[in-house]
Structure formats: structure tokens, C-alpha cells
Amino acid sequence: MQYQVLLSLWSLVAGLCMAITNDNLLQRSRKSSDNIIELTDGNYQRILGTGRNAWIMVFLTSSSPQIGCATCIEAADEYKLLAKSWFKDHPEGVSTAGEEEASLFFAISDLKDSKIPETFSFYGLEHVPKFFLFGPGGNIREYETIELMSGGGMERVLGLVSDIKKSTNIPDFNIYQPMNWSLISIVAFTTFCISYMFKRHYELTTKILSMRPLWALVWTFFTILMLGGYMFNLIRGSQLAGVGENGDLVYFLPNQSSSQFRIETQITGVIYSGLAAAVVGLVLAVPKLKSYYKGTSKSTIVEVGSSVVFAIMVYAFFAGLTSIYEIKQPGYPYPLTKVSSLFK
């Protein structure tokens, strides 16, 4: 009988010693600028499988370009917004607005390279992303799966918040969208400049704004921006670029024709701009040069030379465009011959 009592006391003391406190979880959260605890092979069992008095939401994902999970990349930014919004109102991770005090923390397990995290094997994951919500207590095998909505952006974030509120009975979970100060600054500066020019130099400003080439450039730039996927990036909140297995930058999401990094917009924008400039050069610049050198010995050389230069530019930029199509969609049937292959 005494041995049973001693064994029970020992189990209780051992459990208390192994339990992870809210302060410990808070310290781990503060190690990340996003207030998200990183689960590793060495800490996930202690964080999820020992006694605690807090809810923990876990995001199981993959940022590896080899996996090519576009939804994971979109959901990662949404998850960061979720965690930042929670800690903005609850710096200690604790809510006292409900009937009972409740603590909530956020964690992530990310497959970044070829090595599969133990958490993936432990839960038998076959696909990502996944959201698990662990309740207080510390049973590593008891959790609630929160379904991910198909639509991205703010709608999905609000859906996750709604599910968390229902499961945890935490009523005061608000989302705070970050202000796009760069866009606000650009609009304010542009408005100021136009207003100043109209007030001080009305005739000159009117003449400039009436120039057809100016509006042609503006609308060409706008068209190129939209073709490059700027609006897609704005709506989905795409990340700038990816990181490869060896830590190198990844500019394109392979095999993902419906998703992209923000840097893809910049690259395709440059290619479309170069292609447009080369076509305009063939149509307008070559005849102008021919007319300028008309009647001289250089007329034929200038016409042929400029035509060849612009034609090569068209080919080079279009080849770059089709190369991107091949990366995004391997079955793309219309690749152009790469100039470098001629010298192999």
C-alpha cells in the first residue's frame, strides 16, 4: 500500500516537473518575430505531449520548392497574420474575456528540405497543409483538425478564427490587417505632385497630360503589370521568393501554373517590357532610322542592322517567356531553341 502511494506521488511530481508552463511557451513564442513556436524533432514531444494549461495551434506545412505546395505558401502568410493579431491584443498569450481564463499559442512544423520532420511521421501525414488544435492537458494524440478553406486571403483567416473561437470558447480574437504604407505614401506623393503642378504650372501640366505617347506608356506599363500577376499577388499576399534545399533563392514555383512568388511579377514584367520595346523598335524605330539615313551609303546597313538587332531582342525575350512557361508547366509544347544550345 505504501509503495502504491509513493508511486502515485512520484508520478505526480514527475508530471509536474515535466509539464511545460505558459511562461515557457511564451518565451519560445517570443524567439520568433511572428510569435510562432518552431517545432523540431527534439522539442515537439515536450511541447505537445507534456502537461500544460494552454491551447496550441499547430501548422504542418512545407516551404520546400521541391514539394511545390502553393497552398502552403499562401497559408503561411495567413498563419503569421493570425498569430500576430492574437498577440497584439494578448501580449502574454492569455485571454480573460471568456467565462474562464484561456491561453493560446501557435506552433509550426515545416518540411524545408528532403529530411521529413518527425512530427510528419508521428501523425502519418500524407499531404499538407494541416492545422491541428491541441487542448490543455498534454495528450499528444488528442487534437482537433481544423479544415482549411479553399479560398485564400482574409476569408480563410476569418474562417480559422471562427473555428478557434468555437473550439476554445475564446471570444476576443480579432484580426488586424497590416497597413500598406508604401502604397499610401506613393498615392499621397503623386497626388501632391499633380496638385502642385496644376496650381503652379497649369498650361505645362495640361500639355504634358495631353501627350499621347505618355498615355501609351502608362497603359502599356499597367497592362504589363496585370499580365505579370500583380493583382494576384495583392489578393493572395504572395511571398517575395522561395528558399531552395541548399539555401539558394528560388524565383519560380515549379509545376504551379496557378500560383507564384511576387518576384515572378517583376521578372515577367521586365521580359514583357523588353518584348514590347523590341516590337515597337521594329515597327517604328527601323523606318525612322531608314528615313533619317535615306540617300546615304549607310542607309541599307543601318536598316538591316537595326532590324536584326530588334529581331534578336524579340527572339531572346520571347525565349525567356517560354522558358518560364516550361518551368511552370512542364508539358508546355512550344519551347524556343535556346541560343546557348547552339554552342554545345
Rank of each mutant, 00 (worst) to 15 (best):
S341T: 14
L284I: 11
H201W: 04
Y123W: 13
S299N: 09
T96I: 08
M1R: 07
E101H: 00
M211Y: 03
I170F: 10
I108D: 05
K207L: 10
I235D: 05
S29F: 07
G42D: 15
Q256M: 11
M18G: 02
S195A: 14
L9G: 12
F192A: 12
S185V: 10
R156G: 02
N180M: 03
L289D: 14
S121H: 08
V218P: 01
I146T: 03
G49H: 08
Y272D: 08
S185H: 00
Q45R: 15
V283S: 06
K84D: 15
A70T: 09
T71A: 15
N246K: 14
L111S: 12
L26W: 07
N233W: 01
L82R: 04
L7I: 01
G124Y: 10
E147W: 00
L25K: 04
A83T: 03
Q177D: 03
W10A: 12
K112T: 15
I47V: 15
Y325E: 14
K88T: 05
D172I: 07
G98L: 06
L234F: 08
L217T: 01
G151Q: 14
S299G: 00
L82C: 00
F252A: 11
S95Q: 08
T71Y: 12
A83Q: 03
I271R: 02
A276P: 02
E142F: 02
V286C: 11
K166M: 09
A107D: 06
L209D: 05
L227A: 13
Y230V: 05
L183R: 06
V302T: 13
L240H: 10
D34A: 13
I324H: 12
S33Q: 13
D172P: 11
T168Y: 02
V283Y: 10
W219L: 15
L204P: 00
S11Y: 06
L25C: 10
D172S: 15
Y176R: 02
I116Q: 11
V314I: 15
K112Y: 14
E78H: 11
S258Q: 14
V283G: 07
T40F: 09
L284G: 10
V304R: 09
L321A: 12
P178G: 07
L12E: 13
A241Q: 13
E100K: 15
V157S: 10
L9I: 03
G98Q: 09
N22M: 03
Y3K: 14
G247V: 14
W86F: 12
S64Q: 09
T206S: 09
A54E: 07
D89P: 00
V283Q: 05
S8K: 06
A97K: 13
